[in-house]
């Protein structure tokens, strides 16, 4: 790659945000325990691909990160296609040698011929070598609007799971897990206070938590409802 791509690569790095360690144990499955079992390879044969799809904030990225970290047992690669699609599909070259490849945001490359072809060849390569491919997307394979029917049908071949949004109890558990990971104690009543007032997807809630964490750290305070009210400017 010529060095002129260095700027693009920098962009890619910036777009990959900071996330606390994503582990499978920390994943609050809610109604998605079947998808989690499938990811762990407990259901069906291990050599097939796995597609998980669902709305933003349902935990797709978390699962993919955790899979790279815990399930590969060798080399693994996480490719955030939403950021990567500004680069060349050559980014996928050689990845078929990995034990596990996780492709995130598949919807970002739908309609881009060269990228779809690269994913198609990666799929075939991994299958031939016996590695594992895990993909995440906003929509089901048939609804992604892929140009290549060959790719769509391959994605439909393996297990496909839709991630359901978490219910209130599960969301609270997820939020508390996340807080604990940051070394922060989030009492249940404070958690419920947040759930009753803010958008209830993990992205928004984790964002709030980050704000609260910084404020708590700066003020050396514990998270209480009055403190949260004050930080988030609620009367």
């Amino acid at each position: 790659m010529p060095s002129s791509n260095a700027d693009q690569l920098r962009q890619l790095a910036l777009r990959i945000g900071w996330e606390p360690e994503a582990t499978l144990e920390q994943f609050v499955a809610g109604a998605n325990s079947d998808a989690l079992a499938a990811l762990r390879g407990e259901l069906g044969s291990d050599s097939e691909s796995l597609v998980i799809y669902g709305a933003a904030g349902t935990g797709k990225t978390h699962l993919l990160q955790a899979a790279c970290r815990e399930l590969a047992g060798g080399t693994s690669s996480y490719v955030p296609l939403a950021a990567a699609s500004e680069l060349s599909p050559a980014l996928l070259e050689g990845l078929d040698a990995m034990t596990l490849v996780a492709l995130d945001d598949l919807q970002a490359i739908a309609g881009h011929g060269a990228w779809e072809e690269a994913v198609f060849h990666l799929f075939n390569g991994i299958r031939a070598r016996g590695g594992r491919l895990v993909l995440a997307a906003r929509q089901a394979p048939s609804a992604l609007g892929l140009l290549m029917p060959d790719l769509t049908s391959r994605l439909q071949w393996g297990l496909v799971y839709r991630l359901q949004p978490l219910d209130e109890d599960a969301l609270l558990a997820a939020l508390q897990n996340r807080a604990r990971q940051r070394g922060l104690e989030l009492p249940s009543e404070v958690g419920r206070f947040l759930l009753n007032r803010f958008p209830r997807d993990c992205h928004s809630l984790f964002g709030l938590l980050e704000t609260l964490d910084r404020a708590a750290l700066a003020a050396q305070r514990r998270l209480t409802i009055p403190f949260v009210r004050q930080v988030l400017g609620l009367s």
């Binding site: 996330e19 990160q65 690669s77 996480y78």
Partner: peptide, 13 residues
């Protein structure tokens, strides 16, 4: 960070 690790370091053999 985890994502950086998964994207750049874990692919290395």
């Amino acid at each position: 960070p985890e994502q950086q690790l998964n994207t750049w370091i874990r692919p290395l053999q």
